[in-house]
Amino acid sequence: MYGWIWRHLPGPLAVRVALAVVLAAGVAALLLFVVFPWVEPLLPFNNVTTE
């Protein structure tokens, strides 16, 4: 998977490294600000109230 992405990145080494970093940061941001806030209430470890 990572090898495939690496081979398909265009440009010289420096450009590829920069693109790879941007890609990784994008995925991290997507997880942190979209996926995790959505999935978090479904998980059983942050309920603080009694019923």
Partner: peptide, 24 residues
């Protein structure tokens, strides 16, 4: 290799979730 990479990725995602939960 694909399975290995998927597992490593999953581990990274779980680690990132801990960072999210505790700091973000």
């Amino acid at each position: 290799r694909g399975v290995g990479e998927a597992l490593i990725t999953l581990g990274m995602v779980v680690l990132l979730f801990v960072v999210y939960e505790v700091y973000i």
